[in-house]
Amino acid sequence: MLREVTATRYVTPLREGGSLPGIVEGDDLGTYVMKFTGAGQGRKTLVAEVICGELGRRLGLRVPELVRMQLDPVIGLGEPDEEVQDLLKASGGLNLGMDFLPGSIGFDPLAFEVSAKEAGQVVWFDALINNVDRSWRNPNLLLWHQQLWLIDHGATMIWHHSWKSAETAAAKPYDASDHVLSSFAPDLDAAAAELAPRVTEELLTEVTALVPDEWLAGEPGFDTPDELRAAYVRALLARTDIRDRIVLGERSADGPSKVPAWLASELPQRGRK
């Protein structure tokens, strides 16, 4: 189970995020980026954050610590912004916190170098989880202590928005042409050889078990949270051979984002054209 923390103070909203995450302080004296169950993107965003974030960590990628975060809506009574007040009121109970990395800066591919090995691992991982939001428009990477950290995995595993077509979606290629690390000659063969054998049913079962039952309950077509967890395991296992379906073509320059239209409106808008 993820470590549990109680939010003690709401500090400030992060308005570049489509779901209006906020910086909060916890009863462990830590500072976190909190993502809310009451946000418009819904609990599936938090499910994706847990499964993909914890899977990435177990594969050796740097992901800030994720915690279960309890929120008492009374914490927002002094917040002057009505939008934030409404969000906090709608999010009482269990939410998700991500360790805040003080002093980190957003990754800029024109200012920082990434090795072919690390670029390959990140691109392969994003292909595995079908991450549609790590493009040059919105990298979702941070530089902290001169190391690359992966954040914001809410726009992954988009098949879980329509389980009826999940098997078909899992079989599709992954277009990495606009991936923020595509220009660093990612060594995808080495990444696949190292990481794919580690993505086992046992590992995926361990990771999906970290998702709270209450975020999984009530999904149409599934009688129990464990049935839904097993569906996530099957979908991800089916993509472990994704190496041969990763497309690295010409970047779309100033063209439109390749994010599906139905999802684009829900994603953060920073850097998009």
Results as ranks from 00 to 15, higher is better:
2 L>S: 03
2 L>V: 02
10 Y>G: 03
13 P>R: 12
17 G>M: 05
17 G>Y: 05
20 L>G: 01
21 P>V: 07
22 G>T: 12
24 V>S: 12
31 T>S: 03
36 F>K: 03
39 A>P: 01
42 G>L: 06
47 V>N: 07
53 G>V: 02
58 R>H: 13
61 L>Y: 02
63 V>H: 04
72 D>I: 05
72 D>L: 10
74 V>S: 07
75 I>S: 02
76 G>V: 10
82 E>S: 13
82 E>P: 02
87 L>G: 04
97 G>E: 08
102 P>Y: 03
110 L>W: 08
110 L>R: 14
116 A>M: 08
119 A>Y: 03
119 A>D: 03
122 V>D: 03
124 W>T: 11
128 L>F: 08
133 D>H: 04
135 S>E: 10
136 W>E: 06
138 N>V: 10
139 P>E: 09
142 L>D: 08
147 Q>L: 14
149 W>M: 13
163 W>M: 09
164 K>S: 13
167 E>A: 13
169 A>Q: 06
170 A>N: 03
170 A>F: 11
173 P>D: 00
175 D>W: 01
177 S>M: 07
183 S>Y: 01
186 P>K: 14
187 D>E: 12
187 D>H: 10
192 A>F: 00
196 A>H: 06
197 P>G: 11
201 E>S: 12
205 T>F: 03
214 E>P: 01
215 W>V: 03
229 R>M: 08
230 A>C: 13
231 A>Y: 14
232 Y>C: 10
232 Y>H: 15
234 R>W: 14
237 L>I: 07
239 R>M: 02
240 T>D: 04
240 T>M: 04
241 D>A: 10
255 G>F: 00
257 S>V: 12
260 P>C: 00
265 S>I: 12
